[in-house]
Amino acid sequence: MNSFTYTRATTLETAVQDKASAELAKFIAGGTNLTDLMKVNVEGPNHLIDIRQLALKDITDNADGGLRLGALATNADTAYHEQVAKRYPLLAKAILAGASAQLRNMATNGGNILQRTRCYYFYDTATACNKREPGSGCAALSGFNRIHAILGASEHCIAVHPSDMAIALAALEANVNVTGQQGNRTIPFSDFHRLPGDAPHLDNTLQPDEIITSIDLPAKGFAQHHAYLKLRDRESYAFALVSVAAGLEMDGDTITEARIALGGVAHKPWRNREAEDLLTGKSATEENFKLAAAEIMREAKGYEHNSFKIELGKRAIMRALEQAVKMSNKPDSHFHRTSTEPV
């Protein structure tokens, strides 16, 4: 771990100023990812600004009928929040499918969507990684790439985004509110994370002087028809090989709106609007689900160890849609241990 100085920010303004004044400064809140990466010398800030004192912890109603999630509300407080559980159960389930109870108690919403990839090579400074060290190469391309991307990857990086929460936020079409020296702006969730292209060291479009203040959930929560399905190598406490956040609006047996976001397959939460459009106005049949799944995976490309994700992804999409259709509104367990659990 690098040597660094530490301050506690008391206002948003001073936090932003402080960050802008030191080139290698970082914000720290939950610390669950940053501290970890500092210990393996992947991150090496020389100055840490503790933002946990900032008043960004609240979860409040928005005028448009949506909900505002404070950037510093913890993942646990968010998932268990009465309004989130009631109106956005998809989000609650996705959050609770990730990490552990301890980590969810520490991790904040802002930090969750900023967490970095779990690519083995990114984490191991003995290896080549363009994300960690631009220009050094991508060891995963010709290495052990079982957990890597099948969609939207580039010859420079095939890492995937590890968040579960972000997959639900993508499906819900959340907006990310940020503040920087130039003032405030709102980033639609689909524009927040980016594909690696030739600059894989950039995970997202947040500018160095910017800080996430909140995440807005639109009014539409898909509480009636949704599913978060996570497939992984053990029943809990593991990152997704493939995950699917599905939300449907139904009129009888007809789908009037569909949202499908995938985790574990790309550098960002993966949406495919053409596939979603394929389902709009159609009845909820296996046949139609299959068409949508095929469309989503149409351009998928497997590497030596991860081609299985293409078929797995298709099946996961179909199952998630099926679960979303069939789900009852009875209160259920918060957890998705395996695919076999009822939603």
Binding site: Y120, Y121, A126, T127, G143, F144
Partner: peptide
């Protein structure tokens, strides 16, 4: 990882 001869999921 055969490129590095290294246990990579360490």
């Amino acid at each position: 990882d055969q490129q590095y001869g290294r246990f990579i999921n360490h």
